[in-house]
Each structure stands twice: as C-alpha cells, then as structure tokens.
Design a binder for these strands. Structure first.
Lengths: 336, 336
DNA sequence: AAGAGTAGGTAACTCGTGTAACTTATTGAT
DNA sequence: ATCAATAAGTTACACGAGTTACCTACTCTT
C-alpha cells in the first residue's frame, strides 16, 4: 500500500535548470520571474524555459519567501465547523480571487489552549496577511505579536474598529436585536435564546445573545438563555421541559438549530408559531424547507472580489479605503 | 481603520536572542530546540530563554523549513463546500492530533483550471504530506510531480490502491450500491439518482451513481440520472415534472439533497415513501429531522487519532501498516 | 582610433535556521 | 606532571531563491 521510495527523487532546483541551460542561476531567475526582460536574449530565454520544462521545475516557495522576507500566504484561521453553507461558497471565491492576485489562501482550523499559542502558531508560518472571520482573536497583544512577526495585513469583521487591524464593521448583536424587535412586534414578551454548545460558535453566539438582551430590555421583554447541543435527544429533552420555561418565542442562533428545535416542538405537539414563535439566522436554504418556513436574518457579505482587492491593497500599501459595514436584514416568514 | 505602520517593527531573529543573551546563535538553537541538552549549562540556558521571552522571539518556520529540507505542513486540498458536517468535526480532531505531533495542517480550497496546475500550486508550498479526501486528484503524473517536489507522504481514500500513495480503501460506489439494493428489496424498480451540480461534489457523486448502476443492473432495475441544483426552485421544478419520469424511488446523493427534494415532493403532494421511496447518504442529523425520517447510509470513518499516527509513520519511515477499508452501513428509516 | 553606450550575462551577497566540525578550558586518572 | 576525556561553547557551511553590482564584448559616434 505504501510506496517504495527507494529512489529518493531529485528535486530540481533553479541551479539544475541553469546547468542544463548552460547559464547562471541569475539568468534563470530573470527569465522565470520575467524581471528585467530586456536583460536576456530571446535564444537564452527559450533555452531556460525548455530546461525548466524538461526538469519539471517547481519553484521552492519556502526559499523564495525566505529571500523575499515574506510569504504569499493569506491565513484564514477558522474552525471548520464554524463554516456553514453561509460562507463556504464565498470563501471559495475569495480563494480564487486571491490566487489570481498571486496569493495562496490557507485555512487553519486548529484548536489551541489559548489565544497566545494560537497567535504564535500563526506567526511561525509568517503569513503575509491574516483574515479572521471572528473578532475576538485580535487582542492588542496578539496584534503586536503578529505585526512583529511580519504580518502585513490583519483583516477582520468586528463590532468596533480593532486597533492595528483593518475592520469591516459588523456587530452580530444586530442579528439578535433584529430578531428580538421582530418578536416583540409580533406580540411576544418572553424570548428564549438558544446557545449552541459547539466549540467555535460561542464567538458568534454571545454577541447575538447580547443583541437580543439589549433590544428586549428596551421593549420590556424578558430573555432566557437556553443551552442546546446539536443533537436530536437534546432537542427532545428541551421540548419536553419547554412548558416549564414559560416562553412564547425563540431566537435559535441560526437556522440549523432552529430546524432542530422546531422538529422537537412539533414532535411533542407544540404549535409553531401559535405557542412559540421562532427566528433563525443566516437565511439558509434549510430554513425555507421547514414548515412553517423559518423567519430568518440574512447577512449581506461584501463580494469576495471587493474583499480581495482591499486585502491586496492593504498588504501592498499598508492601508485601504474603508468598506461599508455589513448589514443584516430580517426575512419574515411563517414561523413568527 | 488601517494602521499607521510607520514603525516597521523589528522582528526578532535567533541572532537577536543570541546577542542579548551574550552567546552564539548555535547555542540559542540548541536551547530552544532542546537538542543536545547536555551541551548547554543551566545558567546559559536560562539566559537564552529569558532573552527569547523578552524579545518575544517566534521561530521563522520558513527559514527552518528551508534548512530542514522539508516543511511540517500537512496539506488538505479540499473545496470548502465539500466538507459537510460529516467530516468537519473529524477534520478538526485531525488538526489537533497532528498539531500535538508537530505538524501544521492547512486546508487549501482553491479551484484550479486543471489538475496539473493544482498539483504545481501544492508542490510550491513543499508540504511534507498531502491528505486528499477524494481520490481522483492523484494521477500518476501528479504523484510523480509531488514526490519530486519532496512530499513525503500522500494519503488518500480511494476505491483501489493508488500507486505511489497510501490508500485507505473505500469505494463510494458501495454507497450507491447499498442504496440500490435496499430500494430493490423494497420492491422498487425504477431508481432516480440525484446528481448535484455543485462544484467539487462530482468526485463523490459519480462513483455513487456507478454503484447504483451496478447493483440495479444486477437486479433488473432501471437507473435514471436526475441533475439537481441545491436550490428551492430547482427542486420544485423537478417535482413538478416528476410523474413524467416514471420513477418509483430516488437515491439523492446525500441527506441534504434528499431533504431538499423531499420537501418539494411533499409540496406537490407526492407521497414519500408511498409513491417515491427515498434514500440519502452520510447519515446527517438533518435526515433524522425529516418526516418521514430519511433512510440513509452511514460512513464509518477511521478515528482521527489512528489516521494521525499512520500519517506520521508514513512521513517518517515512508511506509505504514495498512488500515482496514472504510465501511458503509445502510440505516433504514421511514422514507423507504 | 578613442570614447561612450548598451546588450547580455555573471559573481557574490542575503534571508534565518540547524548542525557537523572544531576549539578551549577544566577535570580526572595515572 | 602529563595526557585523555569531557563540558560548554563557537565557527562555518548549507538550504534555494532573488537581486545588486559588476564585467565583457560589441556597436555606434566623432
């Protein structure tokens, strides 16, 4: 099943290409990177390209980065599970856009004991930029550490400008607030807020809860936290004990959790939206497949091309014009 | 919003640490890597550690890799959207396991024009291993290119041993076959197979279709390909024209597509499983939330710890004992 | 014929580490 | 007192690329 690997194959370097083409390494570099085009004659250029082709030469990004003083890596630290269908397609576009611009996007989903060790792990890779989907990663200490390791651009979505990083403003509290306002408008006064227990989601769950609290308090409604595992039995248990909670509505973190809970409600005969009004978030297709269809909250993410442009500019010049804040829009359907 | 960055901050190198501690670079390296422990006195060791701490020294993985001749990168090339809930948690565990063992897992989800350019992009990073979830990426040419670029281990799931790569055997055709057998057992004779149109999924969709074909033909059932976008309208259109197709059952690629289509069926009054029996795959929670509950096919993936061990061994010794093939199990529920 | 350009190319340095080979001072054995 | 062994360092090179400064041969001008 494993390979023999007896013939530790020779990896061709630019020196090999130079030797085969009968020129110096410098010339090879000039040709392959198309720098100083007038320095190399047509004949020589062709010889070099032919040699590179013949040897299947692949540049050594590590060596290049060392010399250049920076990599072309854009690091996206994110737990895989936090990427729902909401961002996966978008992230893939970003990959492509940045690839066109000469950057390599890599995602890194490690769990770390603390922020500092995470930041150190990122810094070791010497990415040229770090693109964080959640804000709380960029504390001042982390920012300093990363900057000093040579990271050129820190990009994040956050509720308030993050010092030392380029911030696209968006407060997840707005999602919670929009949900709460809507529920109160529909006459609900006792709002349950589903808190997912999955690792990596609290980054979004907490501000969403905060938003619900803020809006609810302002309108005289009560808020109750409701922890929920992403599992059938957990939802069933919650539905079983639901009447004791005295709640008339739920904001369910996102549409996935909403769907899970709605099923449990329906299984025990709790009427949605009659007894309980439900709001999800992220406006996933899943939500529209529910009956009643889920009221949800749509996030309008900036087009990935625009983000890629901004990031590039940020890397190259250290600054970029601000992007408009992200917005959230409530989409009312049948569950409220 | 952007930072000033006037003070291009000095990144501390091991030379800086050496200078501050009043020792040579070699000594710093010995201390920080804990190589040759008896070579350095306790006093000196402490001075070095203190200096490193004070300067917030972060090793330069790029330089280290260049010197070492290989990186500690494990590359997981995968389109983000192909990672459903099925593998995301597992992948995260793998991250952690390999991190403990000194490796850095990065996912790279770029779309490439062709396999060759993808392989070149991977080779440039000089990963020490590549972990592919789908097989068709490792053609002989790609394997050769990667090997020559210094990749130590190629790991993949595939239907048959891939020359030059360590293969955990699993044929996605088995999923399709299991579905088809089950449907025929339940008396169905005309099977539709949903073909998702999303990028990156054809790698799994095609062998699953093949499996359905194989089993169906052997049992005298017919198979019809049914393309389907992951969108509400597409499903509605399909359901509208369903009767013309003359099918009595569907294998829906996975539970997500099954849920989408089942909803469309129910909206137009097609009874499941009465008129159409449905089988999904991947055994997602989502499937158990449907009514009727979705019959699905569970994949038993090897524990990530075991995979991490095997991969490490493969990197270090070039060979590793074979792992048992993955298995697929049909979970019968109410939709068939 | 002398001088100035220029086309085409190369030698040599650099990036930050890890390590093999060498050095020196001190201790221990005889 | 002498020699060997060891402890505790250091020096110097390699990894693979990009780039600056230099070199040589040729052409053109006057």
């Amino acid at each position: 099943m494993a390979d023999d690997k007896l013939t530790e194959p020779h990896r061709a370097t630019s020196a090999d290409v130079a030797r085969l083409a009968g020129v110096s390494r410098a010339t090879v570099s000039f040709v392959l990177n198309a720098t100083q085009p007038q320095r190399v004659s047509q004949r020589t250029r062709e010889r070099v390209l032919a040699a590179a082709e013949q040897l299947e030469y692949v540049p050594h990004a590590v060596a290049r980065s060392l010399r250049a003083g920076h990599t072309n890596l854009v690091l996206v630290p994110t737990s895989v599970s936090a990427i729902g269908r909401l961002v996966s397609g978008w992230l893939e576009d970003l990959h492509s856009e940045l690839h066109r611009l000469g950057y390599t996007v890599v995602m890194h989903g490690g769990r770390f004991a603390d922020l500092e060790s995470a930041a150190r792990a990122w810094a070791e890779m010497r990415p040229t930029a770090i693109f964080a989907l959640a804000e709380e990663r960029f504390t001042p200490e982390v920012v300093q550490l990363l900057r000093r390791s040579g990271v050129r651009a820190l990009f994040t979505y956050a509720a308030a400008p993050v010092p030392g990083a380029y911030t696209v403003l968006f407060d997840h509290a707005e999602i919670g607030a929009a949900a709460a306002e809507h529920l109160v408008d529909r006459g609900r006064r006792n709002i349950g807020v589903v808190m997912p227990q999955e690792r990596g989601l609290e980054v979004f769950a907490k501000p969403r809860l905060t938003g619900v609290r803020r809006a609810a308090v302002a309108r005289g409604a009560s808020v109750t936290e409701v922890p929920l595992d992403y599992a059938e039995e957990a939802a069933a248990d919650l539905a079983d004990g639901w009447s004791k909670l005295g709640l008339d509505s739920v904001f369910a973190y996102n549409d996935e959790y909403a769907a899970l809970l709605m099923r449990a409600f329906q299984d025990v005969g709790i009427d949605v939206p009659g007894e309980v009004a439900m709001v999800g978030a992220d406006d996933l297709l899943l939500g529209r497949l529910q009956r009643p269809r889920l009221t949800s909250i749509r996030l309008d993410v900036p087009p990935s091309r625009l983000i890629a442009q901004t990031l590039t500019q940020l890397i190259e010049t250290g600054t970029a014009p601000p992007l408009p804040p992200m917005t959230a829009t409530l989409v009312a359907r049948e569950s409220t």
